[in-house]
Design a protein around this nucleic acid. Structure first.
Lengths: 223, 223
DNA sequence: TCTGGACCATACCGATCGGTACGCGGGGGA
DNA sequence: TCCCCCGCGTACCGATCGGTATGGTCCAGA
């Protein structure tokens, strides 16, 4: 019974964190207030301030919810795949789609980046998440390398560059919505793959029979 | 005298726009209020609402100030250079430095990106600026191409990718400040240059003291 | 000199919102 | 059965801030 109480307590705290994330993602970090967050979780502000001491704590809880959701989603997306290069492609496709075709994701993360500039707690929270994402992609690249793909040089700056481009892509998707078109998404994902593992043909690659329907490969400039 | 009045009017409007940009860059778009913006310009809110009809108009004025300032700065930085490749390198260095070593720049732009998600006027304003920046870099790449550098494929997606990485770099600099170190800045700029014009040695290049083995010879750019 | 309007200061309003004080019900332990 | 405290609701406070109403001042033109 005592663990039942503890479970109910943790459950409500989690519900409040999820509610905060959903409303922050829908109305922005500055747009959603604590009353509607509590109402969206089925309680009132009294309960909210019982579980969280301040608004900032709730923001960090929403961040943790976002991080865990990302890990669950990317794990679910990669679960049925075993080929390292296919897993890398799929991960990039998923990330690109999340960035360009999910306005809620954009609203939440852009609000976080704005808050991050003057909030050290949010900064370090996001930094830990970014580090896990980077290590995740480094693992994918290492697996691809072990499977016969040989990207030149060190993988870490390439993954960093790819992740920077991914975040910049998320920003650009806000004012150039045409990059959410499926073919544009594929082209962008191909470009990011190229950033990570190098240009196809410039070194030994083995990945899939898919001829990469990217217009980037048109190469009509010289010939 | 009538143009004197008009000049004074435009001058005060510009002072207010500049004051808004400075305080938005110092305290964030949500952190600065209209009273201190007016006080920083030497007037009060009554004058502010005479020149601008709402807070959003003032934000757009601050944006225009930011855009013009960027163009002035980049023009001043590139003015003494004539070699196309050196101009491209210098532009990238300047942009990277602005992104990673200028917290005020980061605060302003991140606030803009957050606001952009729910403000169409800010979106289109930034889109126009982004387009001018893209065309500017496309011009630099075209000049380099005419001078003997042959990046593979179309330059436009490469410039887009570079600008996306630049914005992502700005975000990352907030929570990984070590990339503001001079050597890291140089490495990042080199990576962005590689994104735009390709890897040195993988095609014909002529820039600064790095004599690449030209395999395909001088194949005149557009001719 | 008179007048009107541009320009700006002052004072104020009202809505919003984070945070707090306090009361209450209900479940678990003695 | 009694009591205690956890979890939560209700009501409220106070500060902030965008926006407005109003009046004053100075200059240009008639």
């Amino acid at each position: 019974m005592v663990q039942n109480m503890a479970a109910r307590r943790a459950d409500m705290a989690d519900r409040l964190g999820r509610s905060a994330f959903e409303l922050f993602a829908r109305e922005g970090l500055e747009g959603a207030n604590l009353d509607e967050i509590a109402a969206h979780a089925g309680v009132t502000k009294g309960s909210l301030y019982w579980h969280y001491g301040s608004r900032q704590e709730l923001v960090l809880a929403a961040c943790n919810h976002y991080y865990r959701r990302w890990q669950r989603q990317v794990h679910a997306v990669l679960a049925p795949l075993t080929d390292p290069m296919a897993r890398l492609r799929r991960a990039l496709d998923f990330s690109v789609r999340s960035c360009v075709a999910d306005p809620a994701n954009r609203r939440f993360t852009t609000g976080l980046f704005a808050l991050m500039q003057s909030d050290a707690a949010v900064r370090s929270s996001w930094f830990q998440f970014y580090d896990t994402v980077r290590e995740f992609y480094l693992g994918l690249v290492a697996a691809a390398k072990a499977a016969g793909v040989f990207p030149p040089g060190d993988a870490r700056p390439r993954v960093d560059l790819m992740l920077e481009a991914m975040e910049g892509l998320k920003l650009r998707a806000a004012f150039e919505p045409h990059i959410a078109d499926p073919d544009e998404q594929a082209a962008v994902a191909a470009g990011l793959l190229e950033v990570v593992v190098g240009r196809p043909g410039s070194h030994t690659v083995q990945y899939g029979g898919k001829p990469a329907a990217s217009r980037r490969g048109a190469k009509g400039g010289g010939a």
